[in-house]
Design a protein around this nucleic acid. Structure first.
Length: 717
DNA sequence: CGGAAGCAG
DNA sequence: GTTTCTGCTTCCG
């Protein structure tokens, strides 16, 4: 069995791999090698996200868990090891395969040179004897703690199997790098131990590419220097490594080639970004790009809604990335303040994002272009306010999530959304994801003909699969996604049907005039304006926001030249001093559990988080603002703003963001800007009588500052 | 600070 | 024929 995306195999189960099916293989090649191959569409990742979440929530019971991509987790079980030692619960034996220098390695595939496998699968050793020889006291301490760690790993994996149903593999050692290196040694469904004693000789002969953090580029650079193995790196001085590769990478390489890795396991929180993307052979016009965005954006919004339900947070930035045909791998990207009003209807939200993306695209590209990928994403998440907390009820209704309600209280109106409705939404979204297709592209990587290319760029319309590609999809039974898609399009217009019959599905042309207007409006609305609006809407404080580095780093500014490499993938080197020292014998045990599922060979996503900060910051944000009756109608925007402004409540609505507290003045300025803008809007719609200066009267001082503020902000252009 | 690049699965 | 769909971190101007 294999999972597909577009025309590629993205992962395959072990029987298929044995027959030569590999990751990122063309489906046709895979079918040749394995005619009976069963293909599963992997376009919708949500089942994998869910599975990953379940697995992570089990593993988290055993220690500090750090997600690595979609299906691997680092677990630091130091605490549990110590606790067991303190209680006298010593393990009588290792569980798993002890990796020693005697065990030969083999390369699993040339496709993935970084994967290490033991050449000879030893008889499964549940009670492997301790290594022979006379270990030093230090080594002996490691033996004791890693014996316990290997038992914990076995328990954790057993729990995953019992509770979620997946087989897993694990590596057990004193650091992330070592645990990871040996984790796949006895895949599937077994674990491998590496004693720190054996680390230097284990690492030395490895090709540099096997070292986590050494990718394609770094390997190439090293090779150019005549360095191919970890041992070759050892010949280089730390100074020369730092000179060649910079502080971070240089120090990391220096440590790692000696079998040492000081990077700590860092508890993973909720994702810091959520993105959706689609690739295609070609997209040459803004109109075509809009079609693609209209498929992607609803999916993004659904994921954001789910994220909101889980974490009560909203993103404050919208990012757009694209790849151009000629540029190969590189992606360009740009971002703006998230243009969405969360109180608006889903349709309005989609439209707002699509138009913002279009504006970004227009700012960066001129037709005709040739995009091969679009990615829309949300980042900079901020926690939302809690209902109540001294906010006016109108504000609560508009901007806040509901306060926790007692279980016996009847469901509110909007929150009552209902479980079935949620399920419907998810199903609809899955259908939407499955509507993703190759657009102008063909499966099997068949390029578009010149004529098709020309048609695409001339008409600005989107072409779908040519007839022969449809035939292929239908006939072979693979890519059931593509075939089923056509059949299930109940809403196709007549025009589309006709086009489809000719082998070219022209998706409905949008009303260009309408687009043009909307786009102009989007461009007119400056980022600063949207920013002000948005900040009012969300963000009291982000409970998961990272502490500013200064706070975490008492050693900031000090030298890191003590052999401690900065974490390659992300930590302040100073953190190490405050966490378990992986190389301090007996005090720590790193454990990597590599959770590679067999049931569905790929998975994703997050679980836990700490919410303690939310309450405190929310209560800090309380402000003695004018109370409103709960039962009144929703205020008009202008009234609402005025109320906030006159009530001196601005700071309540522009509270800490990313650890920074807006000053009262800044908050007032932002609020005043919103107020002014809203007045202009209402005037332009003739909803207000001409009465300039109304705002000015209220807070003359502030608005003087506002004038200078606006002058300094070159947003008129 | 935004965007590019590199790494990861 | 270097490709999928993500997500993270660091570097750099």
């Amino acid at each position: 069995m294999a999972v597909t995306q577009k025309y590629l195999i993205v992962t395959a189960n072990y029987p298929a791999r044995r027959l030569g099916v590999t990751k990122l293989q063309g489906i046709s090649v895979a079918k040749e090698r394995c005619p009976g191959l069963i293909l599963i569409s992997g376009e919708d990742l949500s089942p994998y996200r869910q599975a990953s979440k379940q697995i992570l929530s089990v593993l988290q019971r055993f220690g500090v868990a750090e997600r690595l991509g979609m299906d691997e987790v680092f677990l630091d079980v130091t605490k549990e090891v110590r606790s067991r030692m303190a209680r006298g619960m010593f393990a009588s034996a290792f569980i798993g395969h002890m990796h020693t220098d005697q065990v030969k390695l083999r390369q699993e595939t040339s496709h993935r040179p970084m994967d290490l496998r033991a050449a000879v699968t030893q008889a499964r050793s549940m009670h492997k004897e301790d290594p022979q020889g006379r270990p030093s006291p230090q080594d002996q301490e490691w033996v004791v703690s890693l014996r316990i760690a290997s038992n914990i790993a076995a328990e954790a994996r057993a729990a995953v199997k019992a509770e979620v149903g997946y087989r897993t593999s694990a590596g057990i050692s004193c650091s992330k790098m070592l645990a990871k290196l040996v984790s796949g040694m006895h895949k599937p469904d077994d674990q491998t131990i590496l004693l720190p004693t054996n680390a230097p000789s284990f690492v030395a002969p490895l090709p540099v590419r096997t070292i986590p953090g050494v990718g394609y580029k770094l390997e190439a650079e090293l090779t150019a220097m005549g360095v191919t193995t970890a041992n070759d790196i050892r010949a280089l001085s730390k100074t020369s490594l730092v000179n060649s590769f910079g502080d971070r990478v240089g120090c990391y390489l220096y440590s790692v080639c000696r079998g040492e890795d000081p990077t700590p396991v860092v508890q993973s929180g909720p994702p810091r970004s959520i993105t959706v993307e689609d690739s295609f052979k070609s997209c040459t016009s803004f109109t075509a790009a809009v079609h693609i965005l209209q498929i992607l954006v609803p999916d993004l919004l659904l994921r954001l809604r789910e994220d909101y339900e889980e974490y009560q947070r909203r993103p404050s930035s919208l990012t757009l990335k694209w790849r151009q045909r000629k540029q190969g791998w590189s992606r360009s990207s740009t971002s703006v303040v998230m243009p969405v009003q969360w109180a608006h209807s889903p349709e309005q939200q989609v439209e707002a994002i699509v138009q913002a993306c279009l504006a970004l695209l227009k700012r960066n590209l001129v037709q005709p272009f040739s995009l091969t990928l679009l990615n829309v994403g949300a980042t900079n998440f901020c926690a939302t306010a809690v209902r109540g907390q001294g906010m006016p009820e109108a504000f609560n209704r508009l901007l806040c999530r509901p306060a926790a309600t007692p279980s016996n209280e009847p469901m509110g109106t909007s929150e009552a959304a209902g479980v079935s409705e949620e399920v419907d939404k998810r199903a609809a979204a899955a259908a939407a994801i499955n509507r993703r297709r190759d657009y102008g592209a063909c499966p099997q990587g068949k390029p578009m003909s010149k004529r098709e290319e020309r048609l695409l760029s001339e008409s600005g319309r989107l072409l779908a699969l040519p007839a022969e590609a449809q035939q292929l999809s239908r006939g072979s039974g693979h890519c059931s996604l593509a075939a089923g898609d056509y059949d299930s399009r109940g809403d196709t217009t007549e025009q589309q049907h006709n086009a489809s019959d000719q082998g070219q599905l022209c998706m409905a042309e949008l009303d260009d005039m309408q687009h043009h207007e909307l786009n102009e409006a989007a461009v007119r609305c400056s980022d600063a304006e949207r920013s002000a609006e948005f900040r009012a809407e969300v963000s009291l404080a982000d409970p998961w926001v990272r502490q500013p580095k200064d706070d975490l780093s008492p050693m900031k500014g000090q030298s890191t030249g003590n052999g401690v490499a900065g974490k390659l993938n992300g930590n302040n080197p100073a953190d190490v001093s405050q966490q378990a020292q992986p190389h301090e014998p007996g005090s720590a045990a790193g454990l990597a559990v590599v959770s590679k599922s067999d049931r569905s060979p790929s998975s994703v996503q997050i679980t836990s988080c700490t919410k303690d900060k939310l309450q405190s910051s929310a209560s800090e944000a309380q402000d003695p603002i004018a109370k409103c009756d709960g039962g009144e109608e929703v205020l008009t925007e202008l009234q609402r703003l005025e109320q906030m402004f006159s009530g001196n409540a601005s700071s309540a609505y522009f509270p800490p963001e990313k650890g920074k507290l807006l000053t009262q003045e800044q908050a007032d300025l932002a609020l005043a800007a919103m107020l002014q803008k809203e007045e202009v809007r209402l005037h332009s719609k003739r909803l207000l009588p001409p009465s300039g200066g109304r705002v000015l009267k209220k807070k003359a001082v502030k608005l003087n500052t506002l004038d200078t503020f606006l002058k300094k902000t070159p947003q008129q252009s």
